[in-house]
Design a protein around this nucleic acid. Structure first.
Lengths: 114, 114
DNA sequence: TCCATATTTCAACGAATATTGAAATACTGA
DNA sequence: TCAGTATTTCAATATTCGTTGAAATATGGA
């Protein structure tokens, strides 16, 4: 991960509502949640939410897909893990450190067609 | 870790120069580095650097101690690890996920006097 | 086609942020 | 005490950010 990407991801997460959204999606897992459900869960205006989704998406932290009238947002776990790795990179100059991190969602729970 | 603290830490890291400073300190390990050395390494004006140190310190990401005329800044690994944990908390709703993270500096490398 | 639902786009506003330059403070050694 | 080094404080400025309100777009069903 490049520094630019890391700053973008950190900036995207460095805001109350966006952090809430992202954590909700992390907990929701790879299947994601429709925008409306998130708006209700967090009590946010739909346009405000769109604004925040855009930032998260630009930072590569979430993805969207359409399902009927709903937009389904899902966390991008790979980016999150890259970010965690970037922060701890070469910790203590390579000295004895328990490194790394990872939240690896159980590789697609067979919800998507083929 | 509280959400407020997480946002503060993320905001502190979400800036080019501060991210550089923090990573430099993470790599420097628990002994830290004098402000002057950091200023030189990253080519930053001393007053600008002070401003950024303040933010990192307020967020609990670094500590300072004086050593003669120098101020020695060091990364606060515990806060970093708490932050990583907070982001991955209850990942995928508790489903099969390799959780957590940690960069645990080898508990003081006996550089400080007794 | 017409209506309702779900979400996005656009313009505007106040608040917060990063950098700068000049001056102040704290410590060291002569 | 005096000069010099290391770092911090203060005020000013331009830029970016988050929220709101009104209007637009896209989808699904009658």
């Amino acid at each position: 991960m490049e520094k630019t990407d890391a700053v973008a991801a950190l900036a995207a997460l460095a805001q109350d509502n966006r952090l809430d959204v992202f954590r909700l999606l992390v907990q929701a897992g790879p299947d994601g949640m429709p925008a409306g459900a998130i708006a209700e869960a967090l009590d946010l205006a739909p346009n405000t939410l769109t604004f925040h989704f855009d930032r998260l998406r630009t930072a590569g932290l979430v993805t969207v897909r359409r399902d009927g009238r709903s937009m389904i947002y899902a966390a991008q776990f790979e980016t999150m893990n890259d970010l965690l790795g970037f922060l701890t990179e070469n910790c203590c100059g390579g000295a004895p450190c328990a490194p790394a991190a990872a939240c690896k969602p159980a590789r697609k729970r067979a919800k998507m067609p083929a």
